[in-house]
Amino acid sequence: MDSPASPNSLDLDRTLAMAGSAAASFARLWQALWVQPYVAPPLLEMCRLTLARLHRDEHELAATNPHLEPGALAAARRAAVIAGQAHAATGFSVTERAVLQFAECYALDAQSIPDGTADMVKAQLGEPALVFLIEALGCIDGRIRTARCLRDLQRFAPAQAAHVG
């Protein structure tokens, strides 16, 4: 199998494919997240970077997103998100700030997202987009978590990693 040596959220499906049809379904859902009318791919990528930053995951932060057109996310904006400075930096729209604030709250504790933070996303993008964003954040965060665990498995149980990774 052509699975990556050190998986991240973006190439995880190649590693998980051995799990069969459930993994294939998860991979289809992942693909669908990047072609929908609610949250533009560059903004979704900024959400991924926000979650990766909170996990302090350098491997994830260094990954290149194949779902983005080249140049779709300017280097300065990417750097601001990775530094956790999107809220203060210039060049971010009200919608982008609202979504990134929501992403950060979601990552820290999904139970404690302030109503005002959710209302801001809903006001900017609408109710279906809020639901989509919540789904997408869960998928992205889950994939980052799984990739981290699989990398540890590769590191600590290399015989298994010969199959898993």
Binding site: T15, L16, A17, M18, A19, G20, A22, A23, F26, E135, G138, C139, D141, G142, R143, R145, T146, C149, L150, L153, Q160, H163, V164
Partner: peptide, 18 residues
């Protein structure tokens, strides 16, 4: 097995995000 571990992660991701 590696396949079972992968399968458990797919299940966990599904339960967790939903």
């Amino acid at each position: 097995s590696a396949e079972q571990i992968a399968s458990m992660f797919v299940a966990l991701m599904t339960f967790n995000f939903t």
